[in-house]
Design a protein around this nucleic acid. Structure first.
Lengths: 108, 108
DNA sequence: TGGTTATTTGGCTAAATTACCAAATGGTTA
DNA sequence: TAACCATTTGGTAATTTAGCCAAATAACCA
């Protein structure tokens, strides 16, 4: 792999890595419904404030979400909605694996 | 987050995690062009055989690629092509971040 | 059978990730 | 200004991941 080419894959991997965590996927899913303050997300996720805040900053650094300060609160929103297509494909993969394993069980 | 819900996000995260590495993204991209033996991929990636093999098994376990033994070689192929839509969205995010940073520079 | 090639697996270490707590920051309100 | 929210940041321990080497496996050929 050439260096330049590698950097492109590295950049992509960084974005994808930001999505590669169940809590962050939940947050993205939730933000696709409506914008939210950290406190709301913290309640929904049920983890420490600092933990949720760090997850959000990972998503923000990757360019997936945006933050806006409103009074004492910070409101997060999805920046680019195409991320959701992602999930369709991922679900497709998960289902197809499940189907295949079912067939293997039937055969045996 | 409820437990059941969480598991769904966990399952998704596992698939996405499998894609969250530059070498594995390269491999997926390459396999989208044509199926390949491990040896070809090893040459292209330029890493140890064992390293490439492990990356491939991660992709296989996630249900992203399939392997077929042909003689002494093992041929890998993309299992579900929708993964490629992924990249479009990821590129879109990367570009939009770059654009935004450019604007910030112009303003300052 | 013995040798060679292709691939996987196990073991190891270094680096990255995660989650919590505690402390710092910033805005609001009494 | 002091007390109080909401949020971020720094530090730390536990866990996971990545990549290499060496060894094991599997298929092929002489």
């Amino acid at each position: 792999m050439e260096r330049k080419l590698f950097n492109q894959y590295q950049a992509r991997a960084n974005v994808i890595k930001a999505l590669a965590h169940p809590t962050r996927l939940f947050i993205v899913d939730e933000l696709s419904r409506s914008e939210r303050c950290v406190c709301d997300l913290r309640d929904m996720v049920g983890a420490d404030f600092s933990t949720v805040s760090k997850h959000l900053s990972i998503l923000k650094n990757a360019g997936i979400v945006d933050a806006e300060k409103r009074g004492a609160q910070v409101i997060y929103r999805l920046r680019i909605p195409c991320v959701l297509h992602f999930f369709e494909c991922v679900s497709q993969i998960i289902e197809s694996v499940a189907k295949e394993q079912l067939q293997l069980v039937e055969i045996s």
